[in-house]
Amino acid sequence: MSKLILERLKAQFGDDILEVSSFRGDDVAVVKPSRWLDVARFVHDDPRCDCTYFADLSAIDNCDPRTDELDMDDRFEVYVIAYSVAKKHRVRIKTRLSGDEPRIASVIPVWSGANWMEREVFDMFGVHFEGHPDERRILTYDEFKGHPLRKDYPANRTQPLVEYRDGTFNKLGPFLQDEGMPLNRTVIPDERQ
């Protein structure tokens, strides 16, 4: 895979491209959050990049709550994968956001298919997309507190919509003790809210 897109991006944006890397045909460019929308528009509109096909948009939480500060500067990585059907090449554009009120421009003006993907990232990670026309939760429900894919969300916290029935819920045989979830698990409320 040629590194054409990375070279075009470096020539166009200079120092705003923080780093580029290429591994077995996967071209990655890390950009400054302030130029996120401009870079997206460039790879879409530039005739030699021509990345009109929007493949994916998601995020990564790079924080380890045991050792890192939750508001560390490069906690969230938001990335978009764009593909050119005509040129048959693909690029991954990343940006790094602070853990304190992460905000990024929405890429819906460039690819309208980003709408639900950005809603999912907002739902799972709490990243806000400026200019999103309908920023609501998409997978969980409105009553849900917190963002479940953040590393500081406790793995055993559930937030049931229906109050659980009274009574014992011991696992009946032939379910083994390590099969499935423990039926006696309790509901852990969110104390921060």
């Binding site: 479940p148 969300y153 916290r157 049931p160 819920f169 499935g180 979830m181 039926l183």
Partner: peptide
């Protein structure tokens, strides 16, 4: 009993409901 879905999203067995 919820199967292997041990997470925020799944009801751990419908007899909870």
């Amino acid at each position: 009993c919820g199967g292997f879905y041990d997470n925020y999203a799944t009801v751990p067995g419908i007899d909870k409901v």
